Simulated scan of single mutants.
Amino acid sequence: MGWSPDEEYVAHVNRALDTGLLDQVMISQDRGWYDPDKPGGGTPEPFTHLVDSFLPALRAPGVDEDTITTLTRTNPFRAFAR
C-alpha cells in the first residue's frame, strides 16, 4: 500500500478548517519506515516527515501558526489529557 501525496491530506485538512472543524482535527505522525517486503524491513528513515514536509505544505496555502499549534498540540493534548 502506497502513501497518498501530502497534497491530498492538505486538501482534507483545509476542507475541515473551512467548515469550522478546527477544534476537532488533530495532526500527528504515524509514518514508519518498516516495509515487510524488504529484507530486514527496509532502510530506516527519520520520523521527520510531519515537520519537514507536511506542515510546510499546510502552511503554503495560508494556514497560520496559531492553527498549526491547535492542530498539533492543543487538540491532541485536549483529546488525551486525563
Rank of each mutant, 00 (worst) to 15 (best):
S4I: 14
D35W: 02
P36W: 03
P44E: 02
R15L: 15
F47L: 12
P39E: 06
N14T: 14
M26P: 01
R78V: 00
V25E: 08
I27E: 06
Q24C: 13
D6A: 15
V25H: 08
F80C: 04
R73F: 00
V10A: 11
V63L: 11
S53N: 15
T48Q: 11
G32A: 04
R15Q: 14
E8W: 10
A11Y: 04
H49F: 12
A79V: 02
P46R: 10
G42L: 04
A57M: 15
M1W: 10
V25F: 10
D23W: 06
G40P: 01
D52P: 02
F47G: 10
G42Y: 05
G62M: 06
Y34I: 01
L50N: 05
D6G: 15
R31K: 11
P5Y: 05
D18V: 06
R31N: 11
P5D: 13
G42D: 06
M1P: 10
G20I: 03
A60F: 06
V63A: 09
Y9D: 10
L17H: 12
M26V: 01
D18S: 14
V63K: 11
T48N: 13
R15A: 15
G20H: 07
L21T: 03
A11F: 05
A11K: 11
T48Y: 06
H12M: 15
D52M: 09
R78L: 00
L50T: 03
A16I: 02
L55R: 07
N75L: 04
F77I: 02
D64W: 08
D30R: 07
D30F: 05
T19F: 12
A81F: 05
L55E: 05
L50V: 05
G32C: 04
F54K: 11
P44Y: 01
T74W: 12
L21N: 14
A79W: 07
P76I: 01
W3D: 10
D23L: 05
R31M: 09
E8C: 09
R78G: 00
E65R: 12
L58T: 03
R82V: 04
A60Y: 07
Y34R: 07
P76Y: 01
Y9A: 13
A79Q: 08
P5R: 14
R82P: 00
W33H: 00
V51R: 12
T72C: 10
V63F: 07
E45F: 02
D37L: 12
D35L: 03
M26Y: 00
D18L: 13
P36I: 00
D52H: 10
L71Q: 01
N75V: 01
R73H: 04
E7R: 14
R73M: 03
P39G: 02
G42N: 07
G2E: 15
P44G: 02
P36L: 01
R82A: 11
D66T: 09
T43G: 01
G2W: 15
A57F: 12
E65W: 10
T70S: 08
V51T: 13
D37P: 01
D66P: 04
W3V: 03
A81L: 11
E65V: 07
Q29R: 00
P61L: 08
D30W: 08
R82N: 08
L55G: 04
P61V: 03
D30H: 09
P46E: 07
P61T: 05
P61W: 08
T43V: 03
L22F: 03
G20Q: 10
E8Q: 13
G62H: 07
L58C: 09
G40R: 04
P76K: 02
V25Q: 07
D35P: 07
V63G: 05
E8R: 14
Y34C: 01
A57R: 15
R31P: 00
